[in-house]
C-alpha cells in the first residue's frame, strides 16, 4: 500500500523553509515512552488494531521524543474510538483528524479547511461535537470518540440518521456529509425532536459548498420522525 502523505505545504514552500516536521524522516525511529516496547512490536500493535493500517511513514516519525521534558505527555496512548481501544503513537501537537485518517485509517472523517472553519472533520467526543482538525489527539485520552465509521450497526445496517440522509437525498457531492451526519447525530441524541430552527442552529457549524442545506435539514427532520 502506498504511503499516505499529508499535504502539509503550499507549492511555493521549499524543503529549506519547511518546519522541522517531516513525516518521511523516521531515522529517529519509534521512541515509545515505554522502553521495552520495540519498534517492531509497536508497528505490529498499530496494524493489528487498525481497520486499515494506512500509514507507514506518516505514523513513524518520533524526533523530539528523546528530548521531551519531564512531565510532558506520553507518546504511546490508548484511544477509545467507536467503542474500541486503539493503541497509537501520537505526537504532542498531532490533531485528532490526522490520527484518525493517517494512522488509524478512519478516512470517513474529512479535512476541509483544517482551521475550524468548515465542519468536514466533525466527530463526537463524549457526546459533544468537536472539530477534529482543531483537537489535539492527546486531549482525547480517556474519552469516547465517535466517527462516522462507528455509526452503523454490526450487521451493516445504517444508523437512522444515515438512512434518513439517503432517503432525503441529503448530500450532493458528499464531502461535507460525514461531518453533517455527526452534527445531526449529536443533536438528536440530546434533543430527539428538534424544531427545524433548532436543527438549523445545531447544524450551523458545518459548511456545505454544494449548498445542500435544506436537504440536510429535511434529513434531520426525517431522522427525528417528523415529516420534513
Amino acid at each position: 500500500m502506498p504511503a499516505l502523505r499529508y499535504p502539509d505545504t503550499a507549492p511555493e514552500s521549499t524543503a529549506a523553509s519547511r518546519p522541522n516536521f517531516d513525516f518521511t524522516n523516521n531515522k529517529a525511529g519509534i521512541q515509545a515512552v515505554n522502553p521495552n516496547l520495540t519498534r517492531r512490536r509497536f508497528i505490529k500493535g498499530v496494524i493489528a488494531s487498525s481497520v486499515a493500517a494506512a500509514s507507514t511513514n506518516a505514523g513513524l516519525r518520533a524526533a523530539g521524543a528523546q528530548d521531551q521534558g519531564s512531565g510532558t505527555v506520553e507518546r504511546l496512548v490508548s484511544l477509545n474510538i467507536n467503542g474500541r481501544v486503539r493503541r497509537v503513537d501520537v505526537l504532542p501537537q498531532e490533531t485528532l483528524a490526522y490520527t484518525l485518517r493517517y494512522k488509524l485509517g478512519l478516512t470517513g472523517t474529512k479535512i476541509g479547511c483544517n482551521r475550524g472553519e468548515c465542519g468536514a472533520c466533525t466527530v463526537i467526543i463524549d457526546g459533544v461535537t468537536n472539530y477534529s482538525c482543531s483537537t489535539l489527539t492527546q486531549s482525547v485520552r480517556g474519552r469516547a470518540v465517535r466517527t462516522v465509521e462507528g455509526l452503523q450497526a454490526a450487521d451493516g445496517t445504517l444508523h437512522p440518521v444515515q438512512q434518513a440522509f439517503v432517503d432525503e437525498l441529503g448530500p450532493q457531492c458528499g464531502f461535507c456529509t460525514p461531518g453533517q451526519v455527526m452534527s445531526a447525530v449529536a443533536l438528536l441524541e440530546e434533543n430527539p425532536r428538534p424544531t427545524r430552527e433548532e436543527a438549523r442552529q445545531a447544524m450551523s457549524g458545518n459548511i456545505c459548498r454544494c449548498g445542500a442545506y435544506d436537504h440536510y435539514l429535511n434529513s434531520v427532520m426525517r431522522a427525528s420522525g417528523q415529516s420534513s
Binding site: 499529508y6 499535504p7 502539509d8 505545504t9 503550499a10 511555493e12 514552500s13 523553509s17 519547511r18 518546519p19 522541522n20 516536521f21 524526533a63 523530539g64 521531551q68 521534558g69 510532558t72 505527555v73 505526537l91 504532542p92 501537537q93 498531532e94 490533531t95 490526522y98 479535512i111 483544517n114 489535539l136 492527546q138
Partner: peptide
C-alpha cells in the same frame, strides 16, 4: 506558505 500540521511543541 501555509501548513496543515503543527510544528514540534511540548505538551
Amino acid at each position: 506558505p501555509s501548513y496543515d500540521v503543527m510544528p514540534d511543541v511540548q505538551l
